[in-house]
Every structure is written in structure tokens, then in C-alpha cells.
């Protein structure tokens, strides 16, 4: 089989445009999602029954419904209630709502992983709740949250491909356009895949660099017996 080079030589500007829109969408979803995440996490930690219940329902919906269905829900739902908005807006809203749900859990998990005494001792020495959160809680949750947040943002970059279904002209959509023009689906989708791969690898490498610099060492402290390592490890040299 021969590859069709025109896919790249003639259409590269479309891929570039698409990739930039994908990154922009992910960036907006990141900022908006973190906002939702922080607010919802704070609200649900206050432990007010009804508020917590609403947040729980929100999380369950975002986790239980396929993202593509969420996208259509927002896309057709807003007009149904009289809000006529272009696809790019409904797509961004859907992605942000989706991202927010994941960030809530990350932030809430990081706070709950802190020793209970942190909050109580801050309050005991007379800090207001806001001051306790700002000076005691937040500084401690930033570092452990960064790896899962980077991971989650990578997921959002990948999930944003679904927005092509409502004609948001991000990377996947541009791929479909080029496909329609060239009838070379293999070349097109390999190209698109490689671009996504490059972007996520970049994030992955950043996360790893961060981990090397600030992360706790995760090396197994005890040495595994060679017989057990034959089954229980996948790296290193083969057992004797």
C-alpha cells in the first residue's frame, strides 16, 4: 500500500488549527473545571446535607453517562430551554462540566487525605475558616494534587475529540474534513493520532519531571525474592 502524502503536504494548516483549538478547549476546561472543582470541593467539605447531595448527583451523572451523551445533552438541552448557542460554546460548557467533576474528586481526595488535626488545630488557635483553608489546607494539597490534575487534564485533551460529533472544529473534526477531501482515512487518522500522542506525551513528560523533582520516592523498599520476581515483576533482567 502507498501512503498519500498530500494529506500532510496540502492540509497541514487544518491539522495545526485543529490542534490549537483542542489545546484551547482543554485550557478553558482546565480553568473552568478547577473553579468548579474548588468550589464544589469546599462546599461538599462543609457537610451541609442538601448541598452535598446535589454535588453527589452532579458527580454521579458525569461519571455514569458517556461523555458523548453529555455533549449531546448540553448541545440540545440549552436550545430546548431557549438558549441558542453555537456548537463551540455548548462543547466548551460540556467539557468544562465534565472536567469539573473529576477535579472535585481530586481536590476533595487531597483534603481528606490530610490528617484531621490540621483543620482542627488551625481553628483552635483562632483562625477563621477562610484563613484556615488559605494558610493551612490549600498549601498542603497543592503538591499531591498536581500529578492527578495533570493526568486528568490529559484525559480532557483526549475527550475533547468527542466534540467533533457536534461539529466543533478541533483536531478530530479537522481530520474528518481532510478525510472527506482526500479519501485517505488511514493517513488522516494516523496523523491525527500522532498529534494527540505528541501533545499527551509532552504533558506526561512534564508530570514525570515534576515527579522526579518533588515527588516522594516510590521505590520498593524490600528486595523481592528472585523466584517471586519471576512472576511479580515485569522489569529488570529475567530471573535466574
Amino acid at each position: 500500500m502507498t501512503l498519500d502524502p498530500t494529506v500532510i503536504t496540502d492540509y497541514w494548516p487544518l491539522f495545526v488549527q485543529g490542534a490549537f483549538l483542542t489545546l484551547r478547549l482543554a485550557a478553558i476546561a482546565f480553568v473552568g473545571g478547577m473553579l468548579i472543582g474548588a468550589v464544589c470541593a469546599a462546599l461538599s467539605l462543609l457537610n451541609i446535607g442538601p448541598v452535598r447531595a446535589v454535588i453527589t448527583v452532579y458527580l454521579a451523572l458525569m461519571r455514569g453517562i458517556p461523555f458523548i451523551v453529555i455533549v449531546f445533552l448540553v448541545h440540545f438541552g440549552l436550545p430546548a430551554f431557549g438558549m441558542r448557542t453555537p456548537a463551540i460554546v455548548t462543547g466548551t460548557v460540556a467539557l468544562t462540566l465534565f472536567a469539573g467533576a473529576y477535579y472535585v474528586e481530586i481536590i476533595r481526595g487531597a483534603v481528606e487525605a490530610l490528617p484531621k488535626g490540621q483543620w482542627e488545630s488551625a481553628r483552635a488557635i483562632g483562625m477563621s475558616p477562610v484563613a484556615a483553608a488559605r494558610h493551612v489546607i490549600v498549601p498542603q494539597i497543592i503538591s499531591p494534587s498536581i500529578p492527578p490534575i495533570v493526568n486528568c487534564t490529559m484525559t480532557m485533551i483526549k475527550e475533547s475529540s468527542v466534540l467533533s460529533a457536534i461539529t466543533v472544529s478541533e483536531l478530530t473534526y479537522q481530520g474528518l474534513i481532510v478525510q472527506g477531501n482526500t479519501f485517505a482515512p488511514f493517513e488522516v487518522f494516523i496523523t491525527v493520532a500522532l498529534i494527540y500522542w505528541a501533545i499527551t506525551m509532552l504533558f506526561h513528560m512534564l508530570a514525570q519531571a515534576y515527579d522526579r523533582r518533588f515527588g516522594a520516592s516510590t521505590g520498593r523498599s524490600s528486595r523481592m525474592s528472585p523466584i517471586a520476581a519471576r512472576y511479580l515483576s515485569i522489569d529488570g533482567k529475567s530471573g535466574t
Binding site: 475529540s161 478525510q179 488511514f186 487518522f189 493520532a193
Partner: peptide
């Protein structure tokens, strides 16, 4: 892990015929 599932689906459906 680094590419969207949707693209993988496209590759399987639209891309594989190119490989026969």
C-alpha cells in the same frame, strides 16, 4: 493511553481497510 478512544475507533473502522 495517549490518543483518544474515538480516534482508535476511527482507525479500526476507516483505517484498517487500507491495510486490507
Amino acid at each position: 493511553r495517549g490518543t483518544p478512544l474515538l480516534i482508535q475507533i476511527f482507525l479500526a473502522y476507516y483505517g484498517l481497510p487500507a491495510l486490507g
